[in-house]
Computed example of a mutant assay.
Amino acid sequence: MANVTIHSLKALAVFKTLFEVGSASGAARHLGITQSGVSRSLAQLEENLGIQLFLREKNRLVATPEARELYDEILRLMGNIEELRHSVLALKEFGTSRLRIAAIPGLSFGFVPRLVAALLEENRRFSVSLDMMASHEVQSAVESSHADIGFITLPATSPQLHAETLLTTQAICLLPERHPLAAQASVDVCDLADQHLVISNQPSLATNPLLELVAHHGVRIAGKTEANIGTITALVANEVGITAMNPITAHDQLGRHERVVVRPFTPAMTFGFGLVYRGEWKHSRVLAFLRDRGRELLADYRR
C-alpha cells in the first residue's frame, strides 16, 4: 500500500471482518454500517492495493489467495499493535518495557527468578530475559549493553559499572544425613581432613574459596568432585561428599533434597553478592524495584 492513511486502516478493518464473516451483509451487521458501505470500502481497498481480494460468484464473495495472505499480515499487524500497547503501559510504570538480566549461577536457582516473578506481578506486560553466567561474564555483558542489570559475586572488577552490595553472608556446611560429621553441632575446616569434597567447577581451582581455605590450614582431603553449582546439593544428598557453600544457593536447592543436613562452618568463609549496572540506569524505577524487593527477599532468607 503506497500511502497508509486512517481511511486505508479502516478499510483493512472492514476487510478483516469481511474475510472472517464471509458476506458483505454479515460484515455490515457486525460493524454497524451499511452493506453498500462495506462494498465501497472493499472496492477502495482493492483499487489502492492494485489486487483483487474477492471473486464475485452468484451473489457471494470468494476470497482469493492474495486475500488470505493479506489477512495473515493484518493479524500480525494487530499482534504488533497489541504488543506496542503493552509496552507503552510498562513504560509508564517502570520507565522501560524490556529488561535484560544477567546473573551468576548461585543466585539463578531461586533468588533472581523470584525477583522476576515479583516484577511481572506488578506488570505482566514486561518483557524479561534472564541469562546465567559467571560473575566476570555478567559484568562484561552489562558493560557491552548485552544486559541491563547484573547480579554478581562481589567485589566488582569493572570500573565502568556502578556496583551495590545486596548481601554479605557466611558459608554453611552441607553433609549427607548419614555422615559421621552430621552428628556435630558445627563443622570446622580441620574436620575436613581425609574427607571427599564437592566443589563448584571454577575456571581455576586456585580461585575456589573452600580449596583455598583447606590449603591455608594445611588440611589434606581425600579427594574432590568438581561439578556445576546446580548439582552440588544433589551430589551431597547422594553421599558423594561434603561441601561448604553460601546459604542463598543452598536454600534454593535444599527443598529438593531431604537427605542433606546443614551445619555452621568455621572459620567464616564470606560471600558477597551485588548489583551492577551502567550509569544511565542509576535512577531507573525498575532498578529501584529490584533493589528494594531483592533486599526484602534476602531478609526472608535470613529468617
Rank of each mutant, 00 (worst) to 15 (best):
Pro113Lys: 03
Pro113Trp: 03
Leu115His: 01
Val116Asn: 01
Ala117Pro: 13
Ala117Val: 12
Ala117Glu: 13
Ala117Tyr: 11
Ala118Phe: 15
Ala118Ser: 15
Ala118Met: 15
Leu119Pro: 11
Leu119Asp: 00
Glu122Lys: 08
Arg125Met: 01
Phe126Lys: 14
Ser127Lys: 07
Val128Asn: 09
Asp131Leu: 04
Met133Arg: 04
Met133Asp: 07
Met133Asn: 09
Ala134Phe: 02
His136Phe: 04
Glu137Arg: 00
Val138Leu: 10
Ser140Asn: 08
Ser140Asp: 12
Ser140His: 00
Ala141Glu: 09
Val142Asp: 00
Val142Thr: 05
Ser145Trp: 15
His146Val: 02
Gly150Asp: 03
Phe151Ala: 00
Phe151Ser: 05
Ile152Ser: 11
Ile152Asp: 06
Pro155Phe: 07
Ala156Trp: 06
His162Glu: 15
His162Val: 12
His162Ser: 06
His162Phe: 14
Glu164Ile: 00
Thr168Cys: 13
Thr169Glu: 15
Thr169Pro: 15
Gln170Tyr: 07
Ile172His: 09
Ile172Asp: 02
Leu174Asp: 04
Leu174Glu: 03
Leu175Val: 12
Leu175Trp: 10
Leu175Phe: 11
Arg178Leu: 01
Arg178Phe: 00
Arg178Val: 09
Pro180Asp: 05
Leu181Val: 03
Ala185Asp: 06
Ala185Tyr: 05
Ser186Lys: 13
Ser186Trp: 13
Val187Gly: 12
Asp188Ala: 01
Ala193Glu: 04
Asp194Gln: 15
Gln195Phe: 09
His196Val: 14
Leu197Tyr: 11
Ile199Leu: 13
Asn201Leu: 10
Gln202Asn: 07
